[in-house]
Design a protein around this nucleic acid. Structure first.
Lengths: 232, 232
DNA sequence: ACGAGGCTGTGACCACGGTCACTGGAATCA
DNA sequence: TGATTCCAGTGACCGTGGTCACAGCCTCGT
């Protein structure tokens, strides 16, 4: 690997507009910490205000209702960041964040972070784009929750998972196959409902389980099923 | 009135950090237009990218499922703005906006708007704070939709409406009383369910209809009712 | 003063999907 | 090679709340 020795922030997308020297000085302003899978990185309603860069690993933004029900908001891959909202407005954490894999995260306090973005318009813009993309996803989810039944929300989620690898043949392979409980947490339903929705789809030859992956055989038809219900 | 003659942007909160001269030049870069109540200002999925300042009047951000079902996201008062997301990322409109009253809006194209905020860190920060507050409200709404029943969502909305005028006596008057259908659109349920929830509450002496307004008689108890269900 | 239109309030009905309770397979580890 | 754990799949049950259908009220406008 061509990387400089020791931890660095060169793979953090948000910081790409910075020149290497600036990133280096930033490295020393961060607190660094490793997390095990399932370890909690940020706690819902905590009043820390650091922004966190995911240098290695992968994390999940979730919330739990005390009953154990889990609502999943986003997965953030290596090179991403989180915690920006509390850094920006000083408010409490709006969700928890847990490590999915072994993870290395760099914490930067709100003050230096805000100084950084006010000094670099390119960073400010990138951050705003991130915030608006989060907003777009949220309003779509609210629309889904308000207008779609649980089954159709599962269908819609399948489409979202499949679209990135949709081939010209109207087939899309999702690999590895997602765990039912995870899909359930992303569309606010239960594991059982997801299982039933998927068996119905495979009964109708719209979807198929192949080895380790889940294959959407007829993407367009699945898409029409969701759209028909949306507008009605 | 002490205002300068002709339309101006002095009451737009976002632009408060600007000096008056800068606001004046901005006035000439805007396109101005008046709207009647119920008139559509922005159309869902439209691909315009202006930011809109609400100079006079009041507007509502909503979406409709083609069935007529209405999902309400936010009301924006005089001095506010909307449309920033499409200006920032160039994407289509994520919701429709309609005038609630007679409204005067100033449209500013994305390019000059982005130049403006990249040149004024104070504006950039204010905009980010606005974007994160939208995100916070959305994630709260998603949590409510995922963990609360329709009745409890109505209760929660009542609390949100009442809190700003909560007195030391544990009583809060909501004035004027909101229309049931509007509450329904804000918490994604039906007019009928709102009516039933409110009669139940007044039967239990938690809420009372007084002349033109709706009075929450026992704020704390209502609050406990919602919290008890949330954590379970 | 009367009729029209918008809002509220309630009853009856029933389907969607959450919950509970299992079974069975597939991995992982001692 | 069991034993344990995690995940998928399915049946039965029934409560919540969406839908439809009306009836009573205001408030306006003419």
């Amino acid at each position: 690997m061509a990387d400089a020795p020791g931890p660095n922030l060169d793979r953090i997308e948000l910081l790409a507009p910075l020149d290497p020297a600036a990133r280096m000085t930033l490295v020393r302003q961060c607190r660094w910490r490793r997390f095990q899978p399932d370890e909690m990185i940020l706690d819902y309603q905590g009043d820390t205000h650091d922004i966190c860069f995911i240098v290695e690993g992968r994390v999940r933004v979730v919330n739990h209702s005390m009953s154990g029900r889990e609502i999943s908001f986003d997965d953030i891959p290596e090179g991403g960041f989180l915690g920006e909202m509390s850094a920006i407005d000083g408010g409490p954490r709006s969700a928890s964040v847990v490590a999915l894999t072994d993870t290395l995260v760099a914490f930067l306090s709100a003050r230096p972070f805000l100084d950084l973005i006010t000094g670099h318009p390119a960073l400010a813009l990138a951050l705003m784009r991130r915030l608006t993309s989060m907003n777009r996803r949220s309003t779509e989810r609210i629309m889904d929750l308000s207008t779609l039944g649980a089954n159709n929300r599962v269908h819609a989620e399948l489409l979202r998972l499949a679209r990135p690898n949709l081939g010209k043949d109207n087939i899309a392979e999702i690999n590895p196959a997602p765990i039912h409980a995870d899909i359930a947490a992303r569309v606010s339903t239960t594991r059982e409902t997801v299982a039933r929705a998927l068996s119905d789809l495979s009964r109708d030859k719209l979807v198929e389980r192949r080895n380790q992956s889940l294959v959407v055989i007829n993407f367009k038809r699945l898409q029409r099923m969701v759209e028909d219900v949306r507008g009605e």
